[in-house]
């Protein structure tokens, strides 16, 4: 009983009240939700934040009609290849990026509105055996793809009309790249995590692989979410979907690790552990915005952490409508989007 599990916590820390429900989106045509995100959209001279929802076969754009009400603007139907995820393009406007594929990403497409033809359309940006993809500031997209013969890491500069303006190949590490994160405040720096449990650093301008640093084997399959450089150290927010519970720190969902890029040495800065009562492998998927992390737990609840203090700040239990399946931060710190598989999404102010 999830409510019973959460009772000790609600009196002693994270509170559901920290998350205030702002509005609900119910997509009755969506039978199996795969992702939710936000996008800046400019229409008739005004720029506003819109919600993007994805099912396996279609992606829908929602506009705010009233403070607590959303209306569907358009739905892109994408054919036979299922949608796997929406790839947020942080500061892009009127551009939605999606990854499609079966077991892994096979193609990346841009969804957009063309003022030339006065119609919504989609275009192909990349195909391949794509292992990881990330959207960066200034309409840049980085992806890693791997076949038996070739390992490629590439940055694509996207155009507003759905094409690519430029491409830059980055030097691949030996191991498969599992995730990327932009280094905030350093436009040309990018970090990635690999299947060999290392953090790698690239120079995006030259394509150089600058450094490979060991994370440590106690937390396999770590994924990087965010990075920033301060006082000569590189701070990386990692999540640990497969971490096991230990006596010293419980079950870490997120960890902030400081790396010295000069020496490759690292030190743990802060753990963010699962709330009490949640044991074992409980983390399904998560998202990081600024210094807050959110994750869906196997109980069907969503937990929110203050990553710098290592404190679980809020827990959203599964409601009568069912378990939560997705947790995403809205762009610009506009709130938390929680989604269920049945096409129900809640926007919370945090």
């Amino acid at each position: 009983d999830v409510a019973e599990l959460l009772t000790p916590m609600l009196t002693d820390g994270p509170r559901e009240e920290s998350l205030q429900l702002v509005s609900e989106i119910k997509d009755s045509s969506c039978s199996c939700t795969v992702d939710v995100s936000t996008v800046w959209w400019e229409a008739a001279g005004s720029r506003e934040l819109r919600v993007v929802t994805a099912s396996e076969s279609a992606v829908s754009l929602w506009e705010p009609l009233a403070p607590d009400c959303w209306g569907k603007v358009y739905t892109w139907h994408l054919g036979e290849i299922p949608v796997i995820q929406i790839v947020p393009l942080l500061d892009a406007c009127n551009l939605v990026c999606v990854a499609l594929g079966e077991l892994e990403i096979g193609e990346i497409r841009l969804l957009l509105y063309s003022s030339e033809t006065d119609s919504f359309k989609h275009s192909l940006v990349k195909t391949g055996n794509i292992k990881a993809v990330v959207g960066l500031k200034d309409q840049r997209l980085v992806s890693s793809s791997r076949t038996m013969q070739e390992h490629q890491v590439e940055m694509v500069l996207l155009s507003e009309t759905g094409g690519s303006k430029d491409r830059q190949t980055l030097m691949p590490p030996e191991e498969t790249v599992t995730a990327f994160a932009e280094v905030e405040g350093m436009r040309e720096a990018l970090v990635g995590t690999t299947a060999g449990n290392t953090v790698v650093v690239w120079n995006l301008k030259t394509g150089q692989l600058l450094r490979k640093m060991n994370i440590g084997y106690s937390y396999p399959a770590s994924i990087c979410h965010r990075a920033y450089s301060d006082s000569g150290l590189l701070f990386v927010v990692l999540s640990h979907p497969h971490a096991k519970e230990s006596e010293s720190c419980g079950s870490p969902a997120f960890r902030v690790v400081a790396f010295n890029p000069r020496t490759g040495r690292s030190a743990g800065v802060m753990f963010s552990c699962l709330p009490p009562g949640h044991v074992g492998r409980q983390y399904l998927e998560g998202d990081v915005w600024d210094t807050t992390g959110a994750a869906v737990l196997t109980s069907g609840a969503v937990a929110v952490w203050d990553l710098l203090r290592g404190r679980c700040a809020a827990v959203l239990p599964p409601g009568p409508g069912g378990h939560w399946a997705l947790a995403r931060w809205a762009a610009g710190g506009a709130g938390l989007l929680a989604g269920r598989r049945d096409g129900t999404f809640h926007l919370y102010r945090y």
Binding site: V201, L210, S229, G232, A258, P261, R262, A267
Partner: peptide, 23 residues
């Protein structure tokens, strides 16, 4: 963090590593 555990720190690590790494 304990600086001695992490070794000598450079504020210009990105530029320095870019100058040293193979192109």
């Amino acid at each position: 963090c304990n600086e001695s555990d992490l070794g000598p720190i450079s504020l210009n690590w990105f530029e320095e590593l870019s100058a040293e790494a193979p192109l």
